[in-house]
């Protein structure tokens, strides 16, 4: 194989390889911010939250959906407020605005459910934001698969 041929192969393939690496890094970023960083003591299972909601007319928490509008518009936990996607600066700004007047002891339940738990890009940044704002009673709904499968399809309350 000639040197010229090798150089041409290098020039042809290097941009493709670099592009693939860049794409892999970009998609893995979504995983790096996954929900697994949230301490297990803060996590609540859907069945438990549903039981709590059924038990009393007033929910024990302010419930915030920190996912995407297209999901919230279709269905959300009954009584939940939309607080913007935690993965985006605008979303975190809306979250800060939503909670800014609340006392730091206010019980809050965050949820998303856009994607499988380990791939959710929103929930961990939203949790971090409320920790940074010193909210002391924040819980997170652990949704293993997605909101449809783990909440709506189970007949839990939606609006």
């Amino acid at each position: 194989m000639s040197t010229q041929h090798t150089r041409r192969n290098f020039l042809l393939h290097t941009p493709v390889a670099l592009g693939a690496i860049a794409l892999a890094l970009d998609t893995s970023r979504l995983q790096a911010e996954s929900a697994t960083t949230i301490p297990s003591s803060a996590l609540l299972e859907p069945a438990f939250v549903n039981a709590q909601l059924q038990r009393s007319h007033a929910a024990p928490w302010k419930i915030l959906q920190v996912g995407f509008h297209s999901m919230f518009d279709q269905k959300h936990i009954r009584g939940a407020m939309y607080a913007g996607p935690g993965s985006q600066p605008d979303g975190l700004a809306l979250l800060r605005q939503t909670v800014q007047a609340w006392p730091h002891t206010q019980p809050i339940l965050l949820y998303c459910g856009c994607c499988p738990w380990t791939h959710c890009p929103n929930i961990a940044p939203a949790w971090d934001q409320l920790q940074a704002m010193r909210f002391s009673s924040v819980k997170v709904l652990r949704i293993d698969n997605n909101f449809g499968a783990d909440w709506a399809d189970k007949g839990y309350p939606v609006a």
Binding site: S70, G113, C115, F147
Partner: peptide, 16 residues
Amino acid sequence: MSDPRLSLLYGGILGL
């Protein structure tokens, strides 16, 4: 692009 109506047509898309 999807919208709530299209998602509803397909049974609701509540996870991806």
